[in-house]
Amino acid sequence: MSMTLEHVNCIYSADTNHSVHALKDICLTINDGEFIGLIGHTGCGKSTLVQHLNGLIRPTDGLITYNGQDIYGKGFNRKELRGHVGLVFQYPEHQLFENDVFSDVCFGPINLGLDRKEVELRAYEALHAVGFPDEDFESSPFEISGGQKRRVAIAGVLAMKPDILILDEPTAGLDPKGREDILELISRLHRENSMTIILVSHSMDDVAGYAERLIVMDHGSIAYDDKPQEVFKNVRELEAMGLALPEVTYIMRTLKRNGYDVDDTLTTIDEAVDAIVSLYKSRHS
């Protein structure tokens, strides 16, 4: 169940004077069960890239395969592909339309051509998976809070039972609590259902704690594709791309610079707390 991109190029408005080379020669393999963080400054091509993965944008040039099959090959069903590769867009307002939350989540599975019972079962499971309260199933998707809308939007895609789940900036515009909840939810989907996750973001803090692999994009090309710790070693380059390290990493680096013996590549708060506490204990015991 892997996906590969070979020399994919994408050019918008090709034959005008404002053409944009959004993707430049992208080569990428997405393996089963990975948790990938896709990161980059606004306008670097992250959204364009993920829309290539489920066949929403046709590459100007290059080959995209799913399980070894060319997704633009003869007889390939792209509608079915979109059931396997689920993409949640940035703003839930762009997809919510039904009278109530439950029917809205049913939209995806209905489009897959499943029977009524299976559709409702999947919608129910998906809403449960995202932690949406039962008693609000009947409420209008336009009247719930921003965080809840996002949950419903994710459930709407989850109900199609995708193998690969792509989330485009799922935490944008949420408060810290809502952000944490959504990230925790995504990480749980990854752990419990061993779902392949691609988390798109421009914030290192979002992806640092969860992603096992980090892809950094800059001006339409892939700048880095490695483990987060390895990527974070390139501080200067990342900052030149308009990206920052996770805040904790900056603290650890400052500590190290001031003569404390700590690991300055730590990326999550928990790791940092452990490191600082153990340092403190070793000094004061």
Binding site: K79, F89, N111, M160
Partner: peptide, 16 residues
């Protein structure tokens, strides 16, 4: 532009 995004968001959920 918004129509384009909404169309894609619904196509991602299998709309035709």
């Amino acid at each position: 532009e918004e129509t384009d995004i909404i169309m894609k968001a619904q196509m991602a959920r299998g709309a035709d």
